[in-house]
């Protein structure tokens, strides 16, 4: 199982789209930095689709807060701190960073 870490806004590039194509059920996706803009507007639909495919969703709370992004926009998404980020890397065999 893989932890995907998205650092890029889905409105700026295609990292989230490519992540979706390679992710498997049981993987997790962490939104970090501008990646938290995946919670905004139409991008949230892509997150819902990932969740429906069995990918667990997380976002770094401080990056949401910094950008004024509402993490409750996507149900089932967990907000975490850096300690939680480390726990996620421990719980998955590998991580893949998208930026």
């Amino acid at each position: 199982m893989t932890l995907h870490i998205l650092f890029e806004s889905p409105f700026a590039g295609r990292a989230l789209e490519e992540c979706r194509r390679v992710a498997s059920a049981g993987d997790a996706l962490l939104l970090a930095g501008d990646g938290v803009y995946a919670l905004a507007g139409t991008a949230a639909d892509a997150l819902q689709a990932l969740r429906a495919d069995g990918v667990a969703l997380f976002a770094l709370a401080e990056d949401c807060a910094a950008r004024g992004v509402e993490s409750a926009a996507v149900p089932g998404l967990g907000t975490i701190d850096y300690g939680g980020f480390i726990e996620l890397t421990l719980a998955h065999e590998r991580s893949v960073s998208w930026f």
């Binding site: 870490i5 930095g33 590998r94 991580s95 930026f99």
Partner: peptide, 8 residues
Amino acid sequence: DRLVVFGG
């Protein structure tokens, strides 16, 4: 055991 990449 874990390699974590930071970019962007």
